[in-house]
């Protein structure tokens, strides 16, 4: 067992864990989400592994569907964020001094405003819901990745082999696609993957605070926020299982991203 195999193993396990809610969600059907007044407030059992809530809804079904929704929202938001980061980083590093100064200022501006405040503001302005959450999360998560990409490009641009390439008569476009991109894409993919857990957590956070998804949707944030009212009555399972699932989901992403990074990092690749 060498490190590469082990790393690949971790990445696959994390990936399967992430895929699980997406596959399970449509299989479960929505019947379990209906109100069953005969089965209210039941503790975890074999028929309801995560228990039921005050309306008799199966918490397992709600959690899995919530996770699937969170994954979808997180994926879209993280991709949008990654796209913004890539474009702005690229522009800052290639379009000259004025563009660089403006984009760097923009990055600093977004980093200086508290994250959650900005999230809530944007979600509020766009009217909440799935669309609002995606826009809010997408618009707030790009700065650190954009900064990383900008720095990486600037360093590559001054490296000797890029300077030589220009002396060989190669065009800017040619250098960008043959020299810069092959160095950038692993950074970009891993950076975007690392945005994922953030996006999911913040989606849950704004939903929890009431600015996100509508209460009819089985989102993790809504489940957690609703369960708050019942925690004091001893119904611990309402928050415990969905919260644990969220934790596992986020952690899987972390494991996936860090292991993928180890595979593409030339300094560690021979270990």
């Amino acid at each position: 067992m060498n490190l590469r195999k082990k790393t690949l193993g971790y990445a696959i396990v994390a990936f399967v864990l992430l895929l699980l809610p997406v596959v399970l969600s449509p299989l479960l059907g929505s019947e379990q989400l209906a109100t069953h007044l005969t089965a209210r407030n039941e503790a975890p059992s074999w028929s309801h592994p995560f228990g039921t809530d005050w309306l008799g809804r199966d918490m397992f079904t709600r959690s899995i569907k919530g996770l699937a929704l969170s994954l979808g929202v997180g994926l879209t938001a993280a991709l949008a964020s990654g796209l913004i980061a890539g474009t702005l980083g690229l522009m800052a590093a290639t379009l000259g001094k004025a563009a660089d100064r403006f984009i760097s200022w923009l990055i600093d501006l977004f980093l200086s405003v508290p994250h959650l405040v900005l999230l809530l503001l944007i979600a509020f302005v766009t009217g909440g819901g799935v669309k609002g959450v995606i826009i809010a999360v997408g618009l707030t998560h790009w700065p650190s990745l954009a900064r990383l990409i900008r720095a990486e490009i600037l360093q590559l641009k001054s490296s000797e082999f890029v300077l030589v390439s220009r002396h060989m008569g190669r065009s800017r476009w040619w250098i960008a696609t043959r020299h810069l991109l092959p160095h950038l894409w692993p950074q970009f993919i891993v950076g975007t993957l690392l945005l994922f857990p953030h996006a999911i957590l913040h989606e849950a956070a704004i939903t929890f605070l009431g600015m996100g998804l509508s209460p009819h949707q089985p989102a993790i944030g809504i489940i957690l926020s609703e369960s708050m009212r019942y925690l004091s009555t001893g119904m611990w399972w309402l928050a415990f299982f969905p919260g644990l699932c969220l934790l596992i989901l986020v952690r899987s992403f972390d494991v996936l991203a860090t292991n993928l990074y180890a595979l593409v990092d030339p300094n560690r690749s021979q270990e």
């Binding site: 082999f161 030589v164 390439s165 002396h167 060989m168 190669r170 160095h183 030339p266």
Partner: peptide
Amino acid sequence: RPVQLIFQHPERAVNPRWKAGAIMNEG
């Protein structure tokens, strides 16, 4: 460019993700 410079450290003057053939045929 008609004026070419050859550096002291060849390993810095080549893209580590390219094979030697591609490096040599760049110009």
